[in-house]
Design a binder for these strands. Structure first.
Lengths: 137, 137
DNA sequence: TATTGTTATACTCTATAACTATA
DNA sequence: TATAGTTATAGAGTATAACAATA
């Protein structure tokens, strides 16, 4: 009898990680999609909403309520593109960066507790493998 | 700048694996849930539907159409439990076992192509880590 | 009264279609 | 005519509520 299917191991693990993230994000006043958007915007120059949607693999209609909320909370800003007034440029604010970093610190602290169950070498190899395999999806 | 979040790497990877499985399962006449059910039943003694649902983390109502279809295709059988006639015992048939094994062989063959991108040591460590981390979810 | 399996209903998430304003 | 953003609608997937049979 061989190994279990990768998907059968990875999918529940991903689900568990998401479930663990949810309350942490909530403490920082973020939704999952809000956090994804902040991660995509941080370190990037201002771009159009369509560009952002494509970058995170979401429908353009999907992110609109997310952007509305992030803007209301002062974590991002939006402004019509002077070169093409159909488009709206989006960028992260200083406050958005701080919130994103604080949330990520808490999330990764929690993930470290899970990773602690692995021997150090396996743990480093696991991260390396994930970086490779999730490289170009 | 540190590593990416585990969930941010694992979730898209899981999604990609599921997407790759779908057409393979279709060739074997299986749905994703049907395959999950066959995997849960194989090697197990006949049990009640509620037990099965709990084992795969699904709602008891969720699996009913799945069981109907698997039974129609002769991959499982159902019979009222003589000791508690409210319950219906479910078990996999010989044909169900053959279909499950054939599907899994194709699925894992495909997964191996993905894993081939990793150095052999990392690849073994990755599987080991997944087995550990997905152990008790 | 509680539980198994079932069906019917409601809810959540996501994608598609339709609208506006610009190009 | 086509495209960016938006809104409204519809679809898929899932969970919740209600029911019949049995305990």
């Amino acid at each position: 009898m061989g190994r279990r299917d990768l998907a059968a191991m990875i999918t529940p693990l991903g689900r568990a990680l998401i479930a663990a993230e949810r309350p942490i994000l909530h403490e920082h006043g973020l939704t999952m999609w809000g956090y994804v958007v902040l991660n995509a915007l941080d370190g990037q120059p201002a771009g159009a909403q369509a560009t952002l949607a494509a970058a995170i693999g979401a429908d353009k209609t999907r992110i609109i309520p997310v952007l509305d909320e992030l803007q209301r909370d002062g974590l991002i800003e939006r402004q019509p593109d002077p070169d093409d007034r159909r488009a709206r440029l989006v960028w992260i604010t200083a406050r958005g960066r701080r919130v994103r970093e604080a949330a990520q610190a808490d999330i990764q602290r929690n993930e470290e507790r899970l990773l602690a169950r692995l021997p150090p070498a396996d743990r480093r190899a696991f991260i390396r493998a994930l970086e490779v395999l999730s490289g170009d999806l």
